[in-house]
């Protein structure tokens, strides 16, 4: 019971971005506390959550889908940088 509570508390504490790549053509960022688009153009996308920020470089980037907890970036991704 105690372990379950601890795990739940730890899960709530995690505020980083869960990142999932599909080759170099699609990347999905998820965070239960919410994600934010800070900057968007065809070559750079900056995404932020409460505790971390990520910058994606590439060409022909577009946002395939966006919801409060998830952002999907598509295009030719060349690199990813944690700020």
């Amino acid at each position: 019971m105690k372990n379950k509570r601890e795990r739940k508390a730890k899960k709530q504490e995690f505020k980083g971005l869960q990142t999932e790549f599909y080759s170099n053509t699609q990347v999905t960022f998820e965070n239960p506390c919410g994600v934010e688009i800070l900057e968007y153009n065809t070559e750079t996308v900056r995404i932020g959550s409460e505790k971390s920020r990520v910058r994606i470089y590439g060409s022909g980037l577009d946002l395939g889908h966006i919801s409060p907890q998830c952002v999907m970036v598509r295009g030719k991704i060349t690199s990813l940088e944690f700020e």
């Binding site: 688009i37 800070l38 968007y40 980037l61 395939g64 889908h65 966006i66 409060p68």
Partner: peptide, 27 residues
């Protein structure tokens, strides 16, 4: 500030998809 609109729309639960940048001022 297109990004702000996109983020605000996402937070409000307004669905947006196939978002493409056309130029510096247009999405």
């Amino acid at each position: 500030y297109c990004e702000r609109i996109i983020t605000a729309a996402a937070k409000e639960g307004i669905p947006l998809w196939q978002i493409e940048r056309i130029d510096d001022k247009t999405v």
